[in-house]
Computed example of a mutant assay.
Amino acid sequence: MKRTSRKIQATMLKKIARLLPVEVWKPRSPFETLIHTILSQNTNDRNSDAAMKKLRKRFRITPSVLAQARVRELIPYIRSAGLYTSKAPRIIAVSKIIQEQYRGRLWPILELPYEQAKERLMELPGVGPKTADILLAFVAKNPVIPVDTHIERVTKRLGIAPQNGNYETVRTSLEALISPRNRIPIHLSMIEFGRAVCKAPRPRCLICPLNKTCPSSNV
Score class of each variant (00 low, 15 high):
Asn44Glu: 04
Glu100Tyr: 06
Ile186Pro: 00
Asn164His: 09
Ala196Thr: 07
Ile145Leu: 04
Val154Glu: 03
Ala140Leu: 04
Ser29Phe: 00
Leu83Met: 11
Arg195Glu: 07
Met1Glu: 12
Ile16Thr: 13
Ile8Phe: 05
Leu210Cys: 06
Pro203Ile: 00
Arg195His: 08
Lys96Asp: 01
Glu192Val: 13
Leu135Phe: 05
Tyr84Lys: 08
Gln116Cys: 06
Asn218Val: 12
Val197Leu: 07
Tyr167Met: 11
Glu23Asp: 15
Glu152Ile: 01
Val147Trp: 01
Ser86Tyr: 08
Pro76Ala: 08
Met122Trp: 05
Pro30Ile: 01
Cys208Ile: 04
Asn166Ala: 14
Val219Cys: 14
Leu106Asp: 02
Val219Lys: 12
Glu23Ala: 13
Asn47Phe: 06
Ala117Cys: 11
Ile91Gly: 00
Arg6Ser: 13
Arg153Thr: 05
Lys7Ser: 14
Gly194Tyr: 02
Leu158Cys: 11
Val94Pro: 00
Thr43Trp: 00
Ser217Val: 01
Val24Leu: 14
Ala176Met: 08
Ile16Val: 15
Arg3Ala: 12
Ile61His: 01
Leu210Tyr: 07
Ser5Lys: 10
Ile98Ala: 00
Ala137Thr: 11
Leu83Glu: 10
Ser95Thr: 01
Thr172Ala: 12
Arg105Trp: 03
Glu152Ala: 14
Pro185Glu: 03
Gly194Trp: 01
Phe193Ile: 07
Ile16Ala: 05
Glu100Ile: 06
Ile184His: 03
Glu115Trp: 04
Lys141Pro: 04
Ser217Thr: 15
Asn218His: 10
Leu135His: 13
Met1Pro: 14
Cys205Tyr: 02
Ile184Val: 13
Gln41Asn: 10
Phe193Met: 05
Ser189Pro: 05
Arg153Ala: 01
Thr213Ser: 13
Lys212Arg: 12
Lys7Met: 11
Leu106Gln: 03
Arg46Asp: 03
Gly128Leu: 02
Arg90Asp: 02
Ser95Gly: 02
Gln163Ile: 06
Arg46Phe: 10
Ser40Thr: 13
Arg28Ala: 13
Glu152Ser: 15
Ser64Gln: 07
Glu73Trp: 00
Lys212Val: 07
Ser86Asn: 11
Lys26Tyr: 09
Leu174Trp: 11
Gln163Arg: 14
Gly128Met: 03
Trp25Phe: 09
Cys208Pro: 02
Pro63Val: 02
Glu111Trp: 07
Gln101Asn: 09
Arg58Ser: 09
Gly194Asp: 07
Lys212Thr: 12
Glu32Ser: 14
Arg46Gln: 11
Leu20Ile: 15
Val94His: 00
Arg58Met: 11
